[in-house]
Amino acid sequence: MLSQRGKAAIDGAMPLFSVTLGHAAIPNTHSIWESAVQCFEQILEAYDARAVLSGQDNLRSILQATFDEEVRGLLDADAQEAMGLLDDALDDATKARVLAQVVAGTVAVLERTTDFGRPADAERFRAEVRRFAESGHRGRLVETIEGSRVFGRCYASQQIRDVIVRAADDRHDSEGSAGWLEEEGESAIGWATELPSRNMGLPWGFTILALN
């Protein structure tokens, strides 16, 4: 179960997500990298870990641990430049998915770094990043966010928040998964019926090949 600090950390990142005509988005004035830096620092603050873990190197380690192998190669070279390339290639909904993965991955690692009320520690953080990168949770986190219909069909940022919480919390039992997929489908259908046909947006399941 995700801690209250974890939920508060995700809530703190939500102002960077918006919903326009049923599509999730992040501010056009921010690159994905700038948004990732801002979210990372806010999440550290929620875990009282900013004094110990603040810095781009630690953010890069989260990005390398969270994203799939194709993207990791770019991030290893230069995270900021790679995120700039992604900005040019991705639509608004997919940019929001990328940022959601950053938020969920950071929270997942910090939940373990500070579990049982222990203070943040740089060595333990690095160990948990490695553990997360090699764990099944990482794949389920990516799949939960990539497979969610919400980013292409949503009516409120609360839906985005719920997907991020689910991904970070690693609720992957089959019954729970069926329940949230059904809930997402109902929400998406409800939103679609309120829109004129020209605003229906991208097909469900759309994604960018490089992030699969």
Results as ranks from 00 to 15, higher is better:
residue 3 S to N: 08
residue 5 R to A: 13
residue 7 K to S: 14
residue 18 S to D: 13
residue 19 V to F: 03
residue 19 V to W: 00
residue 23 H to L: 11
residue 26 I to C: 01
residue 29 T to Y: 12
residue 29 T to Q: 13
residue 30 H to Y: 14
residue 31 S to D: 08
residue 32 I to G: 02
residue 37 V to R: 08
residue 37 V to L: 05
residue 39 C to L: 02
residue 39 C to Y: 03
residue 39 C to W: 04
residue 43 I to G: 00
residue 43 I to K: 03
residue 43 I to E: 02
residue 44 L to M: 08
residue 44 L to P: 03
residue 48 D to W: 01
residue 50 R to K: 15
residue 52 V to M: 10
residue 53 L to M: 06
residue 53 L to F: 04
residue 54 S to H: 06
residue 54 S to K: 06
residue 55 G to I: 01
residue 56 Q to D: 14
residue 61 S to F: 01
residue 62 I to P: 00
residue 62 I to F: 01
residue 64 Q to E: 11
residue 66 T to H: 04
residue 66 T to R: 01
residue 66 T to G: 03
residue 66 T to F: 04
residue 67 F to Y: 12
residue 72 R to V: 10
residue 73 G to M: 11
residue 74 L to W: 14
residue 75 L to M: 12
residue 75 L to S: 02
residue 76 D to R: 13
residue 76 D to E: 15
residue 76 D to Y: 13
residue 77 A to F: 12
residue 77 A to C: 09
residue 77 A to I: 14
residue 79 A to K: 01
residue 80 Q to M: 05
residue 87 D to S: 07
residue 89 A to D: 14
residue 90 L to Q: 01
residue 90 L to A: 07
residue 91 D to A: 09
residue 92 D to E: 15
residue 95 K to A: 02
residue 95 K to Y: 02
residue 95 K to T: 01
residue 96 A to S: 09
residue 98 V to Y: 04
residue 100 A to E: 00
residue 101 Q to C: 07
residue 101 Q to S: 13
residue 103 V to L: 05
residue 108 A to G: 02
residue 108 A to P: 01
residue 109 V to P: 00
residue 110 L to V: 04
residue 111 E to V: 05
residue 113 T to P: 00
residue 113 T to D: 05
residue 114 T to L: 10
residue 115 D to E: 13
residue 115 D to S: 10
residue 119 P to I: 05
residue 119 P to H: 09
residue 119 P to Y: 10
residue 122 A to G: 08
residue 125 F to R: 00
residue 127 A to S: 12
residue 129 V to E: 03
residue 130 R to I: 11
residue 132 F to N: 00
residue 132 F to D: 01
residue 138 R to Q: 14
residue 138 R to W: 05
residue 139 G to W: 06
residue 140 R to D: 11
residue 142 V to I: 11
residue 144 T to Q: 10
residue 146 E to I: 07
residue 148 S to N: 06
residue 149 R to D: 10
residue 150 V to P: 04
residue 151 F to Q: 05
residue 152 G to I: 02
residue 153 R to Q: 15
residue 154 C to D: 03
residue 155 Y to V: 10
residue 155 Y to W: 13
residue 155 Y to C: 13
residue 157 S to Y: 06
residue 163 V to H: 07
residue 165 V to C: 11
residue 166 R to T: 15
residue 166 R to Q: 11
residue 167 A to F: 06
residue 169 D to Y: 02
residue 169 D to T: 06
residue 171 R to S: 09
residue 171 R to L: 10
residue 185 G to E: 12
residue 187 S to G: 09
residue 193 T to K: 12
residue 197 S to G: 07
residue 198 R to C: 15
residue 199 N to A: 15
residue 199 N to T: 08
residue 200 M to N: 11
residue 204 W to K: 09
residue 206 F to C: 09
residue 208 I to V: 14
